[in-house]
Structures are given as structure tokens and as C-alpha cells.
């Protein structure tokens, strides 16, 4: 919409009728929504960092590590299970989940790219892969939660002498109470985002299939949900680093 004549005149640039940031209203608002969403996730991240640093870290040998209330657990000793086996594979399951989400981001980029070319069939194909990737990720997360909540067979003795297996919001076998609380809140908040992303993707897939965007003349809606999907992927990378690796 912007014309060269208006671009040169800064006053007119912000006077209305043109797009000063050279993106459409919808895309711009998606960017600012993502910024505000980044603020809410930062709130959780800040809480996590502050609480973790106000607890003692485990300083002994990694092989001698046992679960205790007195220090923050080492994540690679907590997240060791993968489905269908009892052999410990530290962090492998989250590694797979990360891979799934990155791949679904790639298929989303390809859907956006197909949208630029007005290629309805390709948009449908890649959106469908993205939806499948999202569902696979949420499925893995449900499994991860189940493993975390069920806990080990041995469990751990709490202060009152009882043996506790797994985790809930009030007690857990892995370490201090806030560890499990933060796990549920942070991965749960992220999982909610992925779930709503899947629903939005399904709606956009449906609209593509019935030809809504073809009639509209452009596939910008795919770009907008694409931005959201990449943001959710990005948040997971931060969760992965700060909750599972550090």
C-alpha cells in the first residue's frame, strides 16, 4: 500500500493510510501479542531462576547423586525414562520431543512458503504435517507427565518418615517441593500453548481446504499462525535449556 512518495515524508508515514512497519495490521498485532506472551513466559522463567538460585546446588559426584530435599536435583538424574523400557536413558525422551517440535516448525515454514506461492495443495500438505507434529509433541508430554507423577519404584523417604513415589504439587521424591511445582507450571503452560496452536492450525487447515484463502486472494493467515507456532517452538527451546539441561 505504501507509495514511494509517502515513504520520504516521515510525517505522512505516521499520518495514517500507510504501513510504517511495512507489515499488515494482523501480522503486526501477532508480533505484539507474541511479545506480551514472551512477558508471561518470562514471568515463569524469572520465578524459576530466582527459586532455583535460592536453593543449594548439588556439588558432589554425579554418579553418587541421590534425591534429597537439601539441594536442587540434577535434571539428567530425574528425567531418565523413555517409554517401553526401564533402562535409564537420561534426557533422551526430551531430546526426541525437541526434535519433533523443531521439525514441526520446519514444516510450518514450508507451509508459509507454499502460501506465498498460492499453492493450496502444498499448504494443506505441510499444515497437516505440522498438526501431526504438534499432536505427537503433546502426546509425548502427556507421557512425560505420567512418568514424572508416577515416579520410581523405590521412592524417597520424606521428613515424616513416609515413603513417597513420584510428584504432586505438595510433595515429590526428586527434591525440594518447588521443583515439581515449577515443572508442572512451566511445561503445563507451554503444553497449553501447543494445544491451542494445534487447534488454530486445524482451523486454518480447514479454511485452506474449503478455499477461504484462495477466494481472499492470499494466504497471510498461514503466516500469522506460523509466527505463533515458531514462538511456541522457541519457548520450548528455553524450557529445554533451563529445565532439562542446566
Amino acid at each position: 500500500m505504501a507509495t514511494a512518495a509517502v515513504d520520504n515524508d516521515n510525517k505522512n508515514l505516521w499520518g495514517g493510510g500507510v504501513e510504517p512497519m511495512k507489515v499488515s495490521y494482523g501480522k503486526l498485532m501477532m508480533w505484539f501479542f507474541l511479545l506480551s506472551d514472551a512477558l508471561s513466559f518470562s514471568g515463569l522463567l524469572i520465578t524459576y531462576g530466582t527459586i532455583r538460585y535460592s536453593h543449594d546446588a548439588y556439588n558432589g559426584l554425579i554418579d553418587k547423586f541421590v534425591f534429597s530435599d537439601t539441594y536442587w536435583p540434577v535434571p539428567e538424574k530425574v528425567f531418565t525414562h523413555i517409554p517401553f523400557t526401564h533402562t535409564p536413558f537420561p534426557l533422551v525422551f526430551v531430546g526426541i520431543m525437541t526434535f519433533i517440535l523443531i521439525m514441526s516448525s520446519v514444516t510450518m515454514v514450508l507451509a508459509v512458503e507454499a502460501g506465498h506461492r498460492n499453492d493450496k495443495n502444498d499448504v494443506q500438505k505441510w499444515l497437516l504435517w505440522t498438526i501431526l507434529g504438534g499432536i505427537a509433541f503433546v502426546g509425548c508430554q502427556a507421557w512425560e507427565w505420567t512418568i514424572f507423577i508416577t515416579g520410581s519404584e523405590e521412592g524417597r523417604m520424606l521428613y515424616d518418615g513416609s515413603i513417597f513415589h513420584g510428584a504432586n504439587l505438595r510433595a515429590n521424591e526428586y527434591g525440594p517441593v518447588p521443583f515439581a511445582d515449577l515443572f508442572f507450571f512451566i511445561t503445563g503452560f507451554h503444553g497449553t500453548h501447543v494445544t491451542s496452536g494445534i487447534i488454530i492450525n486445524i482451523i486454518v487447515f480447514y479454511n485452506t481446504a474449503i478455499g477461504t484463502y484462495e477466494q481472499r486472494g492470499h494466504y497471510e493467515m498461514v503466516e500469522k499462525v506460523g509466527l505463533y507456532w515458531h514462538f511456541v517452538d522457541l519457548v520450548w527451546l528455553f524450557v529445554f535449556t533451563f529445565f532439562y539441561l542446566v
Binding site: P20, M21, K22, V23, L28, W31, F32, L35, S105, M108, V109, G226, L227, H230, F231, D233, L234, L237
Partner: peptide
Amino acid sequence: IVGEFMHLKYEAKILIWSI
């Protein structure tokens, strides 16, 4: 991810800085 996938690298400077 933000630069390539979300395409921010190629947007207008003012949008990049706003984010």
C-alpha cells in the same frame, strides 16, 4: 528461529527494534 523462520531479520528496522 526468530530471524529465519519468523522472518524478523528481513522486516523493517523499526519492527525489529520494537520486538
